[in-house]
Amino acid sequence: MKKKYLFGPIILALVLFAGVVFVPSSWLAKLVPADRLEESAISLESNMFQGTYLQNEMLKHSKYIPIYGSSELSRWDPFHPSNYFETNAAAYTPYLIGKGGMTSIIHDLNFATHVDQLKNKQMVIIVSPQWFVKNGTDEQHFAPNYSSLQAYQLPFNKEVDEQVKRKLMQRLMTYDAVKNDTILYRLYDAYLNDKKVMFNNLSVPAKAYISILKKKDLYFTLLKDNSTNRHQSDAVKDKTWKELRAQANTYGEKRTQHSKFYIDDKVYKHKKDYIKGMEGKNKGHSYAESLEYDDFQLMLDILKQADAEALFVIIPVNGAYYDYTGFPKKGRQDYYTRIKKQIHDSGFTYADYSEHEHDPYFMRDTIHIGWKGWVYLSEDMQKFLELH
């Protein structure tokens, strides 16, 4: 009797697992709710970033304009591009792709995965100075954000330029998340060193795992996202850009009554002790030299090959706070100069906000754009979309 109870749950689990693995993806895709894509545009769910299905669907529709970035995308207020364009019934809908820790290397892998869908695709890419620390993205920020599905697909991707693909694989192999995945690491090693027999042997389990990960992606797509708490605000409806900037000034002023450096009061209250301890701590720092520039160049190379129409947004630092920490102005200016040249040399357009370092209410806190900064971005985004 005990054996019956012991094996019952095991058999049930195996049956359920088999059902998950062998249900055709086409069947699962038909179960995706009609409003799922629209809902995901502001959800900022990791499952969407690390999967492929929703992004594949989004890239098919010209009305969706993806905005790639990192943690600033979740700093919601009435001036946020998603709210501005929805409230003003624009012909296009921003589709947010980014969270804390997502830097060039994460976006490189994502763009490589979708490269065949990017031709003439309009997009916005927000570039943060904080990405450009000396050693580039560390394991702590890479591991939670990278997509195992996209990483496994990379060696089999025949759309990406071969040299770019090899550089990207070599870079990915420096991270423990890839090193500790025995099949993936050996697959990359076999590909890069032309070990054809080894690569063909590893391709069998790799492709089987890709199939499982795609199913997992679809199952997560079927689930409703958590509540985003990003409510639409009509405060920005039918306003001129001048009126919106004035409105953003007032909005920001009310929310920085009890803080220094024009930082949101709630953030300042939470970080007050940390901020107090940062006085003069960043002397000698610079964003001028970083491995991130190589990762960023891979992004530019992939997008250029794809003939994507990208607007890069150069976010400033909070000048008052950075001055307080002793971070040299030269270390910031050298970054602005270098990143603009890199973008320009690759043939892309950029919106340069580096002169807004000391502009009150342009930044929401020490590193994130907000309020008036969003107004400038919404305006530049609209001009870019109308010109292309």
Rank of each mutant, 00 (worst) to 15 (best):
I302V: 10
L223K: 09
N83G: 03
P81G: 07
G277Q: 13
Y5V: 10
H258I: 09
L168S: 08
E357W: 01
G8Q: 13
Y191L: 09
Y185D: 03
N83Q: 04
K272C: 01
H80D: 00
Y335H: 00
H61V: 11
K214L: 12
S211Y: 14
E379A: 08
L96C: 02
F111W: 09
Y175C: 04
N145E: 05
N193L: 08
I263E: 01
L168I: 09
P78Q: 06
P33K: 07
K304A: 10
S70E: 07
I10D: 08
A248F: 07
H388S: 12
N229D: 15
R364S: 11
K276S: 13
H270S: 14
Q122S: 15
L118P: 04
P94Y: 01
D359K: 09
S128C: 10
Q150G: 00
Y209F: 09
S46C: 08
A143T: 11
A351C: 02
R166N: 14
V21H: 09
S25M: 11
E159L: 08
H107Y: 05
D264G: 04
K121E: 08
N110D: 13
E292I: 06
A18R: 03
Q117T: 08
K237L: 10
L168N: 04
Q55W: 09
T256F: 10
S82E: 09
I212E: 06
F156G: 04
E243G: 10
A151Q: 04
G373R: 03
A208E: 12
K195P: 07
S286N: 06
M173N: 04
E355S: 15
I183C: 07
D365F: 09
A310I: 08
N157K: 06
K304Q: 13
K330A: 14
H258E: 13
D181C: 00
I97M: 14
V127L: 02
K167V: 10
M173Y: 05
F296E: 03
F85L: 02
L14K: 09
F261Q: 05
Q153E: 09
T240Y: 11
L303V: 02
K4H: 11
V20I: 15
I65S: 00
G277P: 11
A91E: 13
N120W: 06
V164S: 02
F312H: 05
Q305G: 06
A151D: 01
V23D: 01
H231F: 13
T103P: 01
E45S: 12
V23C: 12
D264Y: 14
K224D: 01
L12M: 13
R171F: 10
G277L: 12
S290N: 00
K216G: 15
N226M: 11
E45V: 08
K30Q: 10
I315N: 10
V20E: 02
G331S: 00
V115D: 03
L14E: 09
D116I: 00
T256W: 09
G370K: 00
K30H: 05
D225Q: 12
K254E: 14
N201H: 14
S290E: 04
V197E: 15
K30R: 11
D138L: 08
P316E: 03
P24C: 06
